[in-house]
Amino acid sequence: MTNVLSVRNLRFSYHDHHEALRGVSFDLCEGDKVALVGPNGAGKSTLMLHLNGILRGQGEVMVGGERLTRDNLPAIRAMVGLVFQNPDDQLFSPTVFEDVAFGPLHMGLPKDEVIARVEAALQAVRMSNYRDRMSHHLSVGEKKRIAIATVLSMKPQILVLDEPTAGLDPRARRTLINLLRDLPITMLVSTHDMRMVQELFPRTIVMDEGLIVADGRTEDILADEKFLNEHGLEKV
């Protein structure tokens, strides 16, 4: 299988000298669906912001075999679709259509192509009839699905999601999990939802204090109760 994303020895400090990433390395292969777990402050969100160059630390991020630099930033951003935790931050346009069109428009695509991509992306998250709705009228679950559509319309090779099930009621959560299962795309999902991890992701990466402390089969990791406790995680 082809390697679509590889991260080598990534380090990053915030302005207050807090070291958020202390040498992180991992690879994603095409079609992988990987969970990223760990306690708050472990560096998961910081890592995700590196994957399409919003934060730039020391070390190497390779997407589709290309090293991320300032020059190929626009191309990389189209390849790695980043979905933020709070859909109110992700959906910043007044209407659903404008939001889903934002990515393709800023890739410089022609109008017809933009419209076609919006339709396809909304179809993929099963929200086709929401095209002309206004974002502030949507429920949290609906917003989360539209948020995924806003990056799907850019036809990314990798989907990176931050806490997709946080704040959802059981039914909306179920809908979202089914959606993630059915999307035929490489996926890295940061979450605290261990039941979803068990159900959906064959592979899990565990982070704590800016380091990857485990990377392997979800089954094995979830079986090690002592390890889970050490890193502030709960057995399902």
Binding site: R77, E98, L105, H106
Partner: peptide, 24 residues
């Protein structure tokens, strides 16, 4: 702080300082 996060979300979708709109 929200405007920071929104800015990141815009960057992640290819915003480079120029706003493109579609005239529907």
């Amino acid at each position: 702080e929200r405007s920071d996060r929104v800015y990141n979300a815009m960057l992640a979708r290819g915003y480079t300082g120029r706003l493109n709109t579609i005239h529907p």
